[in-house]
């Protein structure tokens, strides 16, 4: 136990970097995901095709490979803004199709009759989306979206293997120093992760329940 308490500053620094990665990549993935989702439901065929191909390729690439590309190959191609930023870019790219899929499934989850009713009273495409479909879709989308961000929080740990000093990196460093207290250290780090993921999960569950009642 003392190994955890002694190294608390190290863990807190790692925790800060984890939160930073989560925030940066979360915002980036959200913006990119909205763009991809919009392309995917747009009437323009070529955008739809591009977004579909992008989603399929990125979703089926392991995160480790994406981060490997960011950490080893981008610097080799003379693009090196620092490992933290590179990891944030990798996580953004990796998470964006999941955000897009969550958004799209929300739009698909709105019953066809809603859109048909909107169309039949003469609303245009933009009006149908912004007044009828999106308000319902957003509500349904929030729980899966939170799940995506929970996964992102866990995925930031992979960045620790690629030269970013976050919680997993801190765990590796401290376990190297204190080989006698491995269990305590790793459980301590796990608690830090659970501090992020469990409250988010509870929020998602609560919103899900609320939405279910509203329907």
């Amino acid at each position: 136990m003392d190994a955890v308490i002694d190294n608390l500053p190290t863990f807190l620094e790692g925790f800060r970097n984890t939160l930073g990665l989560l925030a940066l990549a979360g915002i980036g993935a959200f913006i990119l995901g909205i763009v991809i989702a919009a392309m995917r439901i747009s009437p323009v065929g070529s955008f739809r095709a591009f977004a579909t191909v992008y989603t399929e390729i990125v979703r089926n690439t392991p995160l480790t490979l994406v981060l490997f590309f960011c950490a080893y190959l981008l610097p080799y191609l003379q693009f090196s803004p620092g490992y933290f930023q590179l990891a944030a870019i990798g996580l953004t790219v990796y998470t964006s199709p999941f955000v897009a899929e969550a958004l799209r499934s929300g739009v698909n989850g709105v019953h066809v009759g809603q859109a048909e009713a909107a169309r039949s009273i003469g609303l245009t495409f933009g009006q149908t989306l912004s007044f009828i479909v999106m308000p319902q879709a957003l509500r349904m989308v929030i729980p899966p979206l939170i799940n995506v961000f929970i996964a992102l929080a866990k995925n930031t740990s992979v960045a620790g293997a690629f030269f970013v000093f976050e919680l997993f990196g801190a765990a590796r460093q401290v376990t190297n120093d204190r080989g006698d207290a491995v269990i305590a250290i790793l459980l301590g780090v796990a608690v830090f992760y659970l501090i992020i993921t469990i409250p988010l999960g509870l929020i998602a569950g609560r919103i899900e329940k609320k939405v279910a009642v509203l329907r």
Binding site: I150, K154, N155, S157, A161, R172, T175, Y193, T197, I198
Partner: peptide
């Protein structure tokens, strides 16, 4: 809940 909230990588190292 514990297993679901923990990164796989940390579990592997553990």
């Amino acid at each position: 809940e514990f297993f679901r909230g923990m990164p796989v990588l940390l579990m592997m190292l553990f």
